[in-house]
Structure formats: structure tokens, C-alpha cells
Nucleic acid binder design. Sequence first.
DNA 1: GCAACTGTCATAGTGTCCTATGACAGACGA
DNA 2: TCGTCTGTCATAGGACACTATGACAGTTGC
Lengths: 131, 131
Amino acid sequence: MLFHIDFKTGKPAYLQLVDQVRYAAASGALRAGDSLPSIRPLAEELRVNRNTVAKAYAELESQGVIETIPGKGCFLKDGNTPFTKPVRQKLLLKEIDEAVVTAHHLQVDRSDFLALVKERLDYFESKKERP
Amino acid sequence: MLFHIDFKTGKPAYLQLVDQVRYAAASGALRAGDSLPSIRPLAEELRVNRNTVAKAYAELESQGVIETIPGKGCFLKDGNTPFTKPVRQKLLLKEIDEAVVTAHHLQVDRSDFLALVKERLDYFESKKERP
DNA sequence: GCAACTGTCATAGTGTCCTATGACAGACGA
DNA sequence: TCGTCTGTCATAGGACACTATGACAGTTGC
């Protein structure tokens, strides 16, 4: 099974699912046009309410990650964002800054940090190439 | 004024303050041993309840960022974390992965992403050197 | 057309997060 | 010692987030 909910973390179930779908898309486990599991069976498998899954899918649609067609299902969109390059970079900066600040408090130095970043970029890239 | 609360974002006030103190520490605006603004005056300046500031400071203390001495005040700790290097790297991976996944969905490619990371690292480093 | 599937919406209950008020205890200086 | 500063704790109210239930609407295949 591709997705899993951890009820011990305190993080809302629907957000866990959102993250996992985003992760699956970024790592190539899901590709543009792929259909996502439909709401009711997935809810049953994850032991959550169907509306919890529906909320996750709604959030993903608002983020432009998936497209949902009532009566048919939900599908992964191709990655075209509606934002211009400067806007996209600005959105990214927020998350990068958080990581940089955390690195400072964890006393991870520049070279270690960069090595970690490259390692993760390589990891995602390798998974996309060999699905 | 060093800190500011934006009531429009929906993000809890105390978390905004936590982020700003962490940011200030990482950028060198606050240094080890510096005393933070005391709770009541800061609360008044930020137009929040004093317990909201207290909660932020409590959170920062639990993160090991500051040290609070009842009756005296709150002070920035030196950055020694209680974690071993592998543990610290693992904690960082979570945030790095989030940024990498977001970069994928925003279609920011590897070289642009790395450039942004280096730019931010440089930025924080320069601020630490010239306070 | 019917049955079984898809997602959607309105509603409600439960919990918890966030904030605020008031009273308390330690530290310091006049 | 007294006043005033520091942070702390207990409590409570209000808002909102999260989840759940039930009824609804579009799509597909028999």
C-alpha cells in the first residue's frame, strides 16, 4: 500500500495524506495522468472517514497537484504551475529559510548542509528516472 | 522594533514570535547570552497578551534556543544541541525533503534550487559576520 | 433504466488550540 | 523592607480544526 496514516503523531490525517501524495508525485511514484485511489476504498484502507480523504484531495486540488472530475475520479496533473519564475522562487525561499535556520540551531555547518541537499536531490531524481 | 506580529496570516501569534526569534538567532541579530525583551513590555508592544509571549518563550526553551531564569529574564543560549550528529542530520532531512518536494511541484530545477540554497546560506553567514 | 461506482455538500459533534485574566513566587535596587 | 521588576501557573472562554454522518449529483456499464 502506498499511503499510511500515523495516528500517534498528532498531525492531522488529511495533511499526512497531502504530504504523501506530494511526495509520491515528486519521487515519480505517481505520474501525470495517473489516477489516484478513489475516496471510499482509500478511506477504508487507511481507517479514516471518507471525508478526511476528500479533504486531502480538495487541498491537493487547490494546490494544483491533482485534478478531480466528479463522477470519474482524481488524477495527477502535469506539473505546470500558474506562477512566474520569480514568484515560484519566492515561495520556495520560505521553506529554504526554515531549513537554513534549523540547520543553524542544530549546528549543521554549510558544507554538511549542502551535502545533505544534494543527496536528497539525487535521491528524488534517481527515483524519477527508474520508476 | 525587532519583532512583529501579523494578525492577518492566521498563523498563531506565539508561533510567529518563535520563528522570528529563531531567525534572529540564526542571522546573528541575537547572540548567545543576549537577553530577550521581557514578557510584559514585549506583549504590549506586539499588542498581544502577555501569556502569548510567555508561551512563545516556553516553546523556545523546550527547543533549547533560549534559557529562562524566573525573576531575571530570558537569555539566548549558545547553540549546543543535545543531539548527536546523525540525529541532527535526520531532523534536518525532514525540512530539506519538504523543500525539495515543493521545488518539484513549483518546477524549480536542480541548479536553480542549489543556487537559492547557497544564496540563503551566504546571506545568513554575512549577517552573522557583520552584526 | 438500473446498479454501482465516482466525488460533493450540508450539518453536527468533539476536541484542542489559542488567547486572556488574575493571582502567585523569585530577584533586585532604593 | 518595600516596591517593582522578572517569569509561572491555574483557569476559563471562544474559535476553529478535524472528523463523522447522511443525503445528493454526475459517470459508467449492464
